[in-house]
Design a protein around this nucleic acid. Structure first.
Lengths: 328, 328
DNA sequence: CTGTTAGCGCTTTCAT
DNA sequence: ATGAAAGCGCTAACAG
């Protein structure tokens, strides 16, 4: 491994001082056009690349970087959030390093990024203690989950409120026998039974039996829907764990010849753009990604202001709302 | 903005030398447990965070970072690639910084990242010269497109071959009147008419008239399909610009009551996982993301080996292949 | 176990 | 217009 070409090598080769090289490559004026060309040529010849570390170390303007942990690149919910976050982060002067926690485990992903970023943001399910350890003292902004330790901040989503609104809206539209498709719980992003718990709280005793769990995917949702209407033909509305599964449910209803929303209303959870693409378009409890992203970045800015120190937990909450389309 | 807390401040506060602080925070042994605790406590009290730049500057082990430019987070094609790339990159010891070129323009995105990475990878449509300028001398690995200047390398996809294979496969299965849904061309990732050009080359004169352009989205594809079968009821197969649009076409065929593949065969382009989710599942010319990603990372490694110098263009090509599912 | 000495590669003064 | 000196904040290598 050849030794790195430094600014000194260039200076020597061009017969000037390092400062002159700096002036040339950053075209900061105060330099003779001829020497500048000579220096630039030397750079090219030697294949000189300035060290980004050395430069950032010395430059006043502090560059801020966040590590974004994406739970899955196969669930559009996460990629839509990642996309929004990326755009807003850039606008607000943040660099974003990403890691997927889909294959890798969370601790490993955090660990890998810890030397390169100032804080972490993401959907993380690691226990508080492990999280704090893996983050190596860097602050963490948790998405859709709270943390209890100093240094762990959060933007939560009021799921309970979402379920309440959805169930009552379904009722308003005439549904009487509401079932639910729950996640079987293996995938990333699974919130242990909270949605189901709230569902049972609001849908009432009569509906509690009409819950089927499935794989957290389109096909999983389709199968679960088929099972559900098979076991409970009287069901007239279904609340689905997330939009991906709800998409499958809509698909399955087509295949089964079940009229949606005529015979069964289907309501998803997440408000994915993708939901517009199926027929009938998916009605969903929308988690308002923009608000989520905004709050997360606000927290990041606060943390940056505090020099990424360990602050007591800060919490923000975003409220879901109904996104009416066609399926309900 | 308060002055940064440095290792010196901690050392002074704990009454030890900087080196001892280093030992404590990186728990490298050779340190008394008591002093270690004292130091750690001082760190906490002062809110000390080590500078990642200073650390990276001094540590021998060179950390490599690539800037990944993602054309769109709304098209699963790009996010699936990004996810694969992220996973493989981590395995191979790369850090990945991402920027979206969906809202921001490419030059601005490159510019933003140029100080933080060693090379760029992505679907970029900027002209060679502008690209080289915006990259600030860093090497670029172009995806699905070639570059002609030194420093611009590429992993191309043999689209022509893909179209040829698709058309002849459609023929083999009995299609005689093959139409095409093209991209109207505004979106990111639009390859100016090459797919259409190849289509016309292989589908022959009779089919040339049966081309409809649409928005590069699911709904755009659906509308285009409706237009196409409206204008040309005799069409018995449709090659679609990409899977997103093809998904819309399948959707539309359901709505129109057109049997797929019975009356019309539909073939997309990209091989999205999402294509499995619709009914009938989407047959597609698969671009083999894994090979694409592998080749891109191979190039990145070669470039790293060469210390990210300016090398003459390196080119790799991946061949698409038919991904038979149900729609054709 | 702990401190001292030397840098890492670059940019900012400040002279000249 | 150019150069010399002085760090940025950290860790490796050596002393003690």
């Amino acid at each position: 491994m050849a030794k790195r070409v430094t600014i000194n090598d260039v200076a020597r080769a061009a017969g000037v001082s390092r400062q002159t090289v700096t002036r040339a490559i950053n075209n900061m004026g105060e330099i003779n056009e001829q020497t500048k060309q000579r220096v630039l040529e030397a750079c090219e010849r030697l294949g000189y690349r300035p060290s980004r570390f050395a430069r950032n170390l010395v430059v006043r303007k502090k560059s801020r970087a966040m590590g974004l942990l994406v739970a899955s690149f196969r669930n559009p919910y996460y990629t839509e959030i990642a996309g929004d976050l990326l755009n807003s982060a850039a606008e607000r002067g943040w660099h974003v390093l990403m890691a997927s926690t889909e294959t890798e485990d969370e601790a490993a992903a955090l660990d890998m990024l810890s030397g390169q970023v100032d804080l972490f943001v993401g959907h993380l399910w690691l226990a508080d203690d492990d999280l704090a350890r893996a983050a190596r003292g860097l602050p963490v902004v948790l998405l859709e989950r709270a943390g209890e330790r100093p240094g762990l901040h959060s933007v939560e989503v009021d799921i309970r409120e979402g379920v309440r609104v959805a169930v009552s809206a379904l009722r308003d539209r005439g549904a009487r026998r509401i079932g639910m498709i729950d996640s079987a719980g293996s995938g990333p992003g699974y919130v242990p039974s909270s949605r189901r718990g709230y569902f049972e709280e609001f849908a009432g005793a009569g509906s509690a039996g009409m819950v089927v769990a499935g794989d957290e995917s389109i096909t999983g949702g389709g199968r679960a829907f088929t099972d559900l209407v098979g076991a409970h033909p009287e069901v007239d509305a279904v609340l689905v764990f997330n939009d991906l599964m709800a998409l499958g449910a809509v698909q399955a209803s087509n295949a089964l010849g079940i009229d949606v929303p005529g015979r069964v209303r289907i309501c998803g959870f997440d408000g994915l753009t993708l939901g517009e693409a199926v027929h009938p378009a998916l009605t969903s409890v929308s988690l308002d990604r923009h608000a989520l992203v905004r709050e997360a970045l606000d927290l990041a800015d606060v943390l940056a202001e505090a020099d990424f120190g360990v602050l007591p937990p800060m919490r923000r909450t975003v409220r879901p709302r109904m996104l009416w389309r066609e399926s309900a």
